[in-house]
Amino acid sequence: MEAPQYVAARVQQALAEDTRTHELGIHVDVRGDQMFLRGKVSGAEQRERLGAVAHEAAPGLRMHNEIKIVDYGEPGEDEHLD
């Protein structure tokens, strides 16, 4: 059986290199027959694409897509540098 670390590395590589995603900042954990995706993206479509690519790269695992969607709506507070 392939060691879980290698499976996770392969999935992470797929998320970075697949033309549908090209997402470098996603954390992949494999525990037993389960796979967990964590990280932040800006839209639901990208989260779905990441889930799909991860599933294709490791189809035998039960996937938990815990990627968070962040909305960068407002500019927020200014910082004064003096």
Binding site: K40, V70, Y72, P75, G76, E77, D78, L81
Partner: peptide, 15 residues
Amino acid sequence: ALPVLGRAYAVYCLN
């Protein structure tokens, strides 16, 4: 980087 800022943009004021 937007994921770090968590907002549309930062504003830095050079006094």
